[in-house]
Nucleic acid binder design. Sequence first.
DNA 1: TGCGATTTGTGCGTATGTATA
DNA 2: CTATACATACGCACAAATCGC
Lengths: 213, 213
Amino acid sequence: MILLYKRYKLCHAVFMEASKVKDIKEKEIGDTMKEPKFSRLKEDIKAKIVHSEWKAGDKIPSENMFAAQYHISRQTVRKAIGELTEEGYLYAEHGRGTFVSERTIHTRTSKNIAVVTTYLSDYIFPRLIQGIEQVLTANGYSIMLKTTRNSRAAEARCMEELLSKDIDGLIIEPSKTQISCRHTSLYDQMDEYGIPYVFIQGYFEQMKKNLTC
Amino acid sequence: MILLYKRYKLCHAVFMEASKVKDIKEKEIGDTMKEPKFSRLKEDIKAKIVHSEWKAGDKIPSENMFAAQYHISRQTVRKAIGELTEEGYLYAEHGRGTFVSERTIHTRTSKNIAVVTTYLSDYIFPRLIQGIEQVLTANGYSIMLKTTRNSRAAEARCMEELLSKDIDGLIIEPSKTQISCRHTSLYDQMDEYGIPYVFIQGYFEQMKKNLTC
DNA sequence: TGCGATTTGTGCGTATGTATA
DNA sequence: CTATACATACGCACAAATCGC
């Protein structure tokens, strides 16, 4: 076993010797070698996404393409792409390719659902929330509770806060529904982040359906 | 170049042939091969940290040690450790080793306070929660609501869940306080994570003091 | 002071499995 | 069936930091 290992190492050394020539050449042409290669690629990809050169849903070049273009190994490319995937910029589809995420940030793993009501002290809402809490707990989710005191300003503030936190969904009793909604942009943002939301105004059955699935 | 590559490949093949024997043996002894190897190691390390077998600041075995013990490659070990580092369980110091993080996970910026009660439907608790909610909202915090239905098992489950989430504090109405607490370890963990917690059993004034600061 | 051993960091090349088009 | 592409895994090389002698 040890003998075989040594033989392997020797052959490897011979091969390495030959490849050294290219390595040196690359170092001469290449960058300053200050920051790691994967880091450079990562920033390049990130920049292209942030500056909308690559838009949401676009397929980015394959790992081998990057490897070839940047003269780095596939593993190094994988490291860059892997980190960007973890950060939410990219997502991979097995056998298809790697794509730019719809909207960054939200990772859909917080297991938190925000429940926003106007008031808590009413006779009905404690029970409602208790019902939601039970269903959510049974499915491993938690409630994040907020109230608006039927103020649209408070609702807007509340939603902004929720957008900055990590929630997987929103159940909201909108305030002052008789007047038109003044902060549709916040709901648009929810859409963009891919956070589902349901309105509740007494439709318990419908709500429950949206909850459990 | 191509010639050298082929020679290398041949040698490699010979070596591989020899190592196959060990591979098969390992498969026989080893696990079901269902989940990836790095994942198993990752869970093992995580468990040791969570169960305080390895405490904050402790140096964990070197990558090569893990590789030898688990009969896996160093790269695979690095993947497991890398993910745990990203999750905040570990940190590495170049040339020294890898250590358990001081405060795992918790980053103290979530602005979430968990409120755990036995039931919600009582007459008093909706008001209590409303009070907490108002104070918290005024200070930019959010409530994360959980109930235990006065079950210690549910309380333990609930706390485990909260520990995995990102909360800055815990306000808890303990279940069945007449009996001694069976899951002190979970409260110990809260201490270790640096998450403050207060018990509520009617001491509104005291609670409020702990809340706002 | 230096030198070697240890340990992490980066990078390379390869192999196998599997899902998709 | 083949080609593409991702996932996991192996082994090796070299660099840089640290520590002990």
